[in-house]
């Protein structure tokens, strides 16, 4: 949580810095232009960190993020939202945008994410293992089945044999995490990277078969991008070795 706050603060600071830049420094290309990036909420911290690298390499370009459920974002792109780059937490969701012919070039997988069980630090439900979701009468949150994290959760529950109903199906993985950190539920299924981002605000419990329900994070520049070069540059950064380091440090797995 503290980490997220730092990232937000950093973003806010960099926005101010960009605003100041607009007047004087007109280094390369489109000065004062904005790159709009829609990304799965699980990518909040990773993209926030990489924003600084990008804005240092591309002076005058201000990166604006919207983080939400991949399926929400993909639907907004299909409905004509003015977006330059889309990053989704699974391939199926990206495919809906590809099918509409809205991507510039084939989407590139740049990371994978596996699921993990998290509980509040005091573990009010007494949960030691994913099987406790069934065995004990606990309140837990998952992603809605339409969201990539929800699809992976359903698959994983099928594998490990959990049949209990959650108390809520949230639209994106960060909402699941928030319900856990707020202490409103006893447990939630989130990505490893989300658990890591939450730090001491949650206790993470690994799930043995989680590697059988991985989601691939994919990114694509969109054909309607205002500045295709700036969009390309963001895709190049996210698929670079530097980004891979940032992503793996945050708990993501390498792309297959």
């Amino acid at each position: 949580m503290r980490r997220a706050a730092t990232v937000v603060a950093a973003c806010a600071l960099s926005l101010v810095a960009c605003g100041d830049d607009d007047g004087g420094d007109t280094g390369s290309g489109a000065a004062g232009s904005t790159l709009t990036v829609f990304a799965a909420s699980s990518l909040t911290d990773a993209f926030g960190e990489l924003e600084q690298t990008y804005e240092a390499d591309n002076p005058g370009v201000d990166v604006q993020f919207t983080f939400d459920s991949s399926s929400t974002l993909a639907e907004q792109v299909v409905q004509g939202a003015p977006v330059d780059v889309l990053a989704t937490a699974d391939e199926n969701t990206m495919q809906t945008v590809v099918d509409e012919g809205l991507t510039a070039g084939a989407p590139i997988a740049f990371a994978q994410n596996s699921l993990i069980l998290v509980t509040p630090p005091d573990d009010p439900g007494g949960i030691q293992d994913v099987a406790d979701l069934d065995a004990r009468d606990v309140d837990f949150a998952v992603c809605a089945p339409d969201a990539p994290c929800g699809a992976a959760t359903q698959m994983l529950f099928g594998i490990v044999g959990v049949t209990a109903d959650p108390v809520t199906e949230e639209e994106n993985v960060r909402d699941v995490l928030a319900k856990v950190t707020q202490g409103e539920v006893d447990a939630g299924l989130v990505y490893v990277s989300d658990a890591q981002a939450a730090g001491d605000d949650v206790v993470a419990i690994e799930i043995g078969q989680a590697d059988q329900a991985l989601n691939s994070d994919v990114i694509a520049a969109l054909s309607e991008a205002d500045d295709p070069e700036a969009a390309r540059a963001w895709v190049d950064l996210i698929t670079s070795a530097e980004a891979e380091q940032v992503l793996t440090d945050l708990g993501f797995l390498r792309a297959p």
């Binding site: 109903d165 108390v167 949230e170 639209e171 319900k179």
Partner: peptide, 9 residues
Amino acid sequence: FNGSFPGTT
């Protein structure tokens, strides 16, 4: 306040 689950919320 309530999240979203079919049938209850």
